[in-house]
Design a binder for these strands. Structure first.
Lengths: 219, 219
DNA sequence: AGGTGGTTTAACCGTGTGGTTGAAATGGTT
DNA sequence: AACCATTTCAACCACACGGTTAAACCACCT
C-alpha cells in the first residue's frame, strides 16, 4: 500500500505496523524543511537529505512538490487544531476555557515557533486550501465555540460579544506575539532581559487582559 | 547619477527632476511583485515585465535580487511606520492616541493588505534586517511611546502596564486580523455578510476592547 | 560632426530546479 | 527457486533561474 492517492486523513491513523514509516519519515522531514524555509524556499533535495533518502522517494510517495506541500499544510493545521479541542468541552467554566485556550496556544508556539507563521503564509498564497482543511479537521468548531460564548454571556460572566469578535480577539493576542514577536520587540526596543520577563508573564497576562476586556460593564 | 550605492534613505526625497524615475519605477514594480509572491516566490523576469523594462535593468540599478529585496523591505517598513508618527505627538490625549493608532493601522491594511504579512515573513528569514531598519526609520519610537504610556498611567487613565505588553496588545489586535483574518474567518465559519459587518465595526470595537482591558481596577 | 558617459537592450551562460526513467534491490508467496 | 509487487536508487533531462556581457542607444558637450 502507498501509491499517490486515497489516504483518508493526513496522519494515517496507526498504519498496520511499521509500514509506511518511510512515508511518515518523508512527511516529517518535509514538515521541518517547509516550515523552516517556506514552501517556495524549500528544495526537494534538501527534504530528501533531511529524510535520509533519495530524492526520487519524495516523488514516489507524493508525486510532486505541490502535493507534498499540501500534505504538510494539512498536517500542520491538524496539529494546531487538535490542541484546542480539550478546552472546548462544554463542562469547562469560561475562565478556565480562556486560560486553557491561551495556554494551549502558547505551548504550541513554544514547541513549533514557525507553525502559525507558516500557516498564515500558506494561507496567503492558497486561500482555498484553508476552508477545505478546516472543514475536514475541525468541522464543529464554530458550534462548540458559540455554545461556550452564549453560556458565558447568559451567566453574566462577560458582556455580549460576537463569536467573530471574540475569536479574533483571542487568536490575535495569542498567535500574533509569536509570529510578530520580533517585530514588536525591536519596535519597543526591548533587550533580552525585558523580553524574557515578558515571555514568562505572557500567559497570566494575556488571560488577565482578556477577562478584563470582556467583563460586564457594571463591575 | 544612479550606481549601486549611496542613496541616503529608501524613498529618495524628491530627486531633482524626473531623474531616476526608472529606478523608482523598478522599485515600485518590485514592491508589488515581492509583496504578492513573497521574496522567494518572486522572479526577476516578472518584476522586469511589471516594470516594463529589460531584466538587466534590475541588475543595473540594484545589482542583485537580494539587494533589490532589501530595498523593497526597507521601503515597506518605512511606509508602515510613517503612519504612526502623527498619533505619537505628546499633546494628543491617551484615548485619541489609541484611537488614532488603531485607525492608522487599519487604514494602512486597507491600502496594503499584504504589507504586514510580507514584513513578518521577511522578518522570519532575515531577523537582522529588522533591527537595522527600525533603528534607521524609527529611532525614537520607544521614548515617545513610553512617555505617552507613563502620562496615561500617572493620570489614572489606565492601570499600570509595561511598554512591551501594551505594544504587543495593541499591535496584535490591529495587525493580526488583517494577516490572519482569513484564518479566523474560516475558523469561526463566518459568511460574507457577518465578515463585512465585523470589518465595518472593528475600529470602534478594537478601541473599545483596548480601553476596557486597560481601564483601572477601581472603575 | 564626432566623442563621451550614462542608460538600455538582446543574447548568452552556468547552475540548480522539479521531475523522469529504468534498473537494481527487497521481501513475501507459491 | 521462481515469481511478483513494492521499495529504493543513481543517472539523467529539460528548462527556468539569477546573473553577465558586449554592443547599441541617446542626450549632451565641444
Amino acid at each position: 500500500m502507498a501509491l499517490h492517492d486515497a489516504k483518508p486523513t493526513v496522519t494515517d491513523l496507526a498504519p498496520p505496523d511499521g509500514i509506511d514509516e518511510a512515508e511518515a519519515n518523508i512527511l516529517d522531514a518535509a514538515h521541518r524543511v517547509f516550515l523552516r524555509q517556506g514552501t517556495d524556499g524549500a528544495r526537494m533535495q534538501e527534504i530528501a537529505d533531511e529524510a535520509g533518502v533519495n530524492k526520487s522517494m519524495l516523488h514516489y510517495y507524493f508525486r510532486s512538490k505541490e502535493r507534498l506541500a499540501e500534505a504538510v499544510f494539512m498536517r500542520a493545521v491538524g496539529e494546531t487544531f487538535r490542541r484546542f479541542e480539550p478546552a472546548m468541552q462544554p463542562e469547562v467554566p469560561f475562565r478556565d476555557f480562556v486560560r486553557d485556550l491561551v495556554a494551549a496556544d502558547l505551548a504550541m508556539m513554544d514547541d513549533h515557533p514557525y507553525l502559525v507563521g507558516y500557516i498564515i503564509s500558506e494561507l496567503h498564497h492558497h486561500p482555498e486550501r484553508w476552508r477545505q482543511t478546516i472543514a475536514l479537521e475541525f468541522p464543529d468548531g464554530r458550534a462548540a465555540m458559540q455554545a461556550k460564548l452564549d453560556a458565558a454571556i447568559a451567566a453574566g460572566e462577560i458582556r455580549p460579544i460576537t463569536l467573530l469578535e471574540f475569536t479574533t480577539f483571542l487568536v490575535s493576542l495569542t498567535f500574533f506575539p509569536t509570529i510578530g514577536g520580533g517585530l514588536v520587540r525591536a519596535y519597543a526596543g526591548a533587550d533580552k532581559e525585558e523580553w524574557d520577563a515578558f515571555l514568562a508573564r505572557r500567559e497570566t497576562h494575556f488571560v488577565d487582559l482578556c477577562l478584563h476586556a470582556l467583563r460586564p460593564a457594571e463591575a
